[in-house]
Nucleic acid binder design. Sequence first.
DNA 1: GAGTATTGACTGATCAATCAGTCAGGATAT
DNA 2: ATATCCTGACTGATTGATCAGTCAATACTC
Lengths: 214, 214
Amino acid sequence: MLLAENQEDAAQDLALDKILRAAEVEFAEKGFDGAGMKALAERAGVSQSLLHYHFGSKDKLYQAVIRQRSKLINDARLLRLRVIDLTEPSALDRIIEALFIPALGPEGGGKAYARIFAGLIAGHARDQALVRECYDPTAKEFLDAVEGALPGANRAIAAQIYQFALGVLASVISRDGRVERLMGNEADKLNDDALIRQLTRFVVGGAKAIADTT
Amino acid sequence: MLLAENQEDAAQDLALDKILRAAEVEFAEKGFDGAGMKALAERAGVSQSLLHYHFGSKDKLYQAVIRQRSKLINDARLLRLRVIDLTEPSALDRIIEALFIPALGPEGGGKAYARIFAGLIAGHARDQALVRECYDPTAKEFLDAVEGALPGANRAIAAQIYQFALGVLASVISRDGRVERLMGNEADKLNDDALIRQLTRFVVGGAKAIADTT
DNA sequence: GAGTATTGACTGATCAATCAGTCAGGATAT
DNA sequence: ATATCCTGACTGATTGATCAGTCAATACTC
């Protein structure tokens, strides 16, 4: 615990981490109810009992996955957010980027956690308290920033923009080729950077449209 | 089945409709895996066997719920979409309204189906084929409309806008007071009409921002 | 430093509960 | 009397969770 706290790449061979990694994938693919402790244990290469030994219950394991990942994402978000000069013209663009990039980058855990995140947006009753705990504090900082960077935005509008932005993010995260399918032949033209640029442009454009005419 | 096809308000006393209504609520609250056939039958006030008698399996029942509701929504959407004059300046606004209003109005089935819809956006493997069947044809008409109404939009951009719009819609649909919580004291100011207006303004603003600079 | 107690990590066997689904037969209307 | 609607009783499989107990390593005692 003293050194080597590199949680991501350097694969900790501790069983506890193997479980967390496997759980993230399993919950992402099947959802909370769809995921099975047996299948999860097999994926992690440990006995099913060990899951309960370390985490107590399925619920607690689920919460542990989300707490860990959301911390990584939020830290990266705040790191980007807090260096933004709110007076410069492109401040809003940088705020939105600070919201999106960590979720889509390596801190976001790739497709795996992305699915879970998209599920959280759907807002089932089970997740409500957890979302409140893990995401609300960071969200409030973003609201402050949006309020400061966007002329004509009060707290209510900032909150709306924030939620809209998360919805757009979720829609992108959980795409399984639907965009490409609907686009037809001109697919594959958007890599991750271009996608983030397009995402940001969309949200910023929408945000300004809301703030202008109210 | 011959007359009285008013599926919504005039409560059909047929068991089949009671099941469909109960299933919509149950699937919305618990998700597909979380919902149980026994609980579902109790909610509908019929025996569990009747579910299998009418629908064969849990999967088929789930599909029936989505097929019925998506048909209502899509019909209402196309009804609005097809009367839009794509040459008038506010065409894009009306297209987006045609996408949103049916999903949030009475045809949309209220909160119940809304949750299911938000879940579909999350895009789990199970739902992929069903989404393709129920929503893709209507989606393509919307893509055509967006492409026609928004100068500078090709098929790829139209598809992006469409998916972003669905994400924004999902984020609004499944909110359980999070916006109000983040807003602070100035809550309750947005009723449904105002929400739709804000939604539309946001998406149209974002769409134009994307189409402009590409 | 040999022997012993204690702890933490881990597993196999097993639990009651719940799951979706089946089936024979009752009810009812035509 | 035939077909449709509907139910209660039931089944095998799977669920999350519990428990007794193994094993290795550390700490403590004399």
